[in-house]
């Protein structure tokens, strides 16, 4: 009995474990290893031919790429900028998601699933398609561009280009990540006990006070888990700045992409990826640390 149940345990956990060890853990370790190597002489072709031991008296391992990262302020600056973009995206998502999540949570039960479905549906369409839609809307020939520039010109202000700007990047970021804020927030708000609001009203709290002292504190865990779901992918995003942004709007993701597919400096690309991983781990830790006392409050 004991051996057969142990056998069952290994039969069902073994295959996925093995697959993930090979195709998730090993690649991650390879990436860490690569970050301590040197790029090849001829960058483009064989960047990591310098195996340890091949160079006489040298292990071939170095922390050069890390020193390089911290020596040039431009890389730290791009990291900080990416943090700023991810933070603003998260804040806009909270502001936009909250009223909708609240409305859905307070709607009648039979409408809730439909309203949630309506949030999920657009997010089911292709990722690139959703970004491309904003290329049309913000493009120089679009109605929105003509409208905004018409107003600007009327007031004697020089016309602006909406596309390929930080503004376009933010819109794309919010658009792609918004459902990840709405869903956890709704899941949280739906569990609130309306009795608490009744009690607050009986005690003379106005609608603003009821929101600020009853609903808002209870919803903090939802906001934190939504923020983690928005902030983390937003921080590593490269497609949106690549498509909607200008040359000055690049983020960490674009930098990493260039090291692997452009300049082919794999060690530095790996170093940047590890920096991003550390940032993500730090943020995830921070969010769960913040979310905990909030959970205890409820």
């Amino acid at each position: 009995m004991q051996t057969s149940s142990r056998l069952v345990k290994w039969l069902i956990s073994g295959p996925p474990l093995l697959f993930l060890l090979i195709f998730f853990v090993t690649p991650s370790l390879i990436m860490i290893f690569t970050s301590f190597r040197l790029p090849g002489e001829f960058g483009g072709l064989a960047p990591v031919k310098l195996l340890p031991g091949e160079v006489a008296g040298d292990s071939g391992l170095t922390i050069e790429t890390y020193q390089f990262f911290f020596s040039d302020f431009i890389y730290i600056e791009i990291f900080l900028k990416s943090f700023a973009v991810a933070t603003i995206t998260t804040l806009i998502c909270i502001a936009m998601a909250y009223p909708l999540a609240l409305l859905i949570a307070r709607s009648r039960k039979k409408f809730r699933n439909l309203m949630i479905m309506l949030v999920v549906l657009p997010f089911a369409s292709n990722f690139l398609v959703r970004i491309y839609a904003w290329m049309i809307i913000l493009g120089p020939e679009s109605g929105l561009s003509h409208f905004i520039n018409g107003i600007l010109v009327f007031f004697g202000i020089a016309p602006v280009t909406l596309l390929f700007s930080p503004f376009a990047v933010l819109i794309g970021m919010v658009y792609v990540h918004l459902p990840f804020m709405i869903l956890p927030l709704y899941t949280n708000l739906e569990k609130h006990d309306p009795i608490l609001l009744d009690a607050a009203q009986d005690l003379g709290a106005n609608s603003w006070q009821r929101f600020w002292y009853v609903t808002w504190p209870q919803s903090l865990p939802g906001i934190f888990s939504g923020s983690a779901l928005v902030f983390i992918p937003a921080l590593g995003m490269f497609a949106i700045p690549d498509i909607l942004g200008g040359t000055g709007d690049i983020m960490i993701g674009n930098l990493i992409k260039d090291q692997f597919l452009g300049t082919r400096d794999w060690p530095f690309g790996s170093t940047l990826s590890i920096m991003l991983t550390l940032a993500v781990l730090g943020i995830a830790g921070l969010f769960s640390w913040f979310a905990k006392p909030a959970i205890r409050m409820t």
Partner: peptide, 12 residues
Amino acid sequence: MPEILLGVSLLL
């Protein structure tokens, strides 16, 4: 985690 991390580590 951000997709790009899985993408580049698998590429390597």
